[in-house]
């Protein structure tokens, strides 16, 4: 199982007190990973619940977005010399068991960054609106990439040491997903995808992007690419 690599699991979280304990329990059932929750300015006691379970928490005093939380995870890995980082959503959407697929792909394809794709192979029940947003984001992101990716917005990712050293995310919001792929390509990193399963619950759908956030995310993404 996934313990073959010394992986640190990073869970960016914002007001996930309702579900974070279950997510951590699910991960523990899969393997003995180091788990670090990046609490992005939660006000609902997310950090206290994680600490009570004996896991580590880095607390952003202010809510700055998923991208900022991920970059904090990358900074931590550099500081403490963690060789592999896996990012997973903390809303319970991902299956920790699928991490094995990411590891296998990283090893088989000698990849530096592996993205868990909801649209590659597996028949996931994804809400139509979410599917539409993801398609639009894929078209936008792929137009700046040399390769084609089926899921540019997935938060389930595995990075090796080369990727950890090379990636400096500037996008604070969800557009970090696209930015990470573009930066990885520019840094000549090998990017691969592997199928993952997802479960959309009312809770996880309520936590995701809506039309307004999606538009703003696209605007920020384009702005930083053009006017950087």
């Amino acid at each position: 199982m996934p313990e073959r690599l010394p992986i640190t699991l990073i869970l960016p979280a914002f007001n996930e007190a309702r579900i974070i304990e279950q997510v951590i329990r699910d991960i523990r059932q899969v393997g003995n990973f180091r788990i670090v929750v990046i609490d992005d300015g939660s006000t609902d006691g997310t950090a206290a619940k994680v600490l009570a379970m004996g896991e580590q928490v880095v607390r952003h005093p202010l809510n700055r977005g998923a991208g900022a939380a991920c970059q904090t995870g990358i900074s931590l890995a550099r500081k403490y010399g963690w060789p592999y980082l896996a990012f997973m959503d903390s809303d319970g959407q991902h299956f920790p068991e699928d991490l094995e697929g990411l590891i296998t792909t990283m090893q088989a394809q000698q990849a530096d960054l592996v993205i868990g794709s909801r649209f590659a192979g597996t028949q996931n029940q994804i809400p139509y609106l979410r599917r539409f947003f993801n398609t639009a984001a894929n078209i936008l992101t792929n137009s700046f990439c040399t390769h084609h990716y089926t899921d540019t917005q997935s938060g389930f990712r595995l990075l090796n040491q080369r990727a950890i050293a090379a990636l400096d995310l500037l996008q604070d919001d969800f557009s970090y997903c696209s930015e990470m792929i573009i930066l990885a390509e520019r840094a000549k990193l090998k990017v691969a995808e592997t199928p993952i399963r997802v479960r959309y619950t009312d809770y996880s759908v309520s936590k995701g992007q809506d039309f307004q956030v999606g538009l703003l995310t696209a605007f920020h993404f384009l702005w930083k690419l053009i006017f950087k």
């Binding site: 990046i38 300015g41 580590q56 928490v57 880095v58 607390r59 952003h60 005093p61 202010l62 700055r64 900022a68 970059q71 904090t72 900074s75 931590l76 500081k79």
Partner: peptide
Amino acid sequence: NRQLALDRFE
């Protein structure tokens, strides 16, 4: 924000 969080964690 990030620097403060990392310092506190350390």
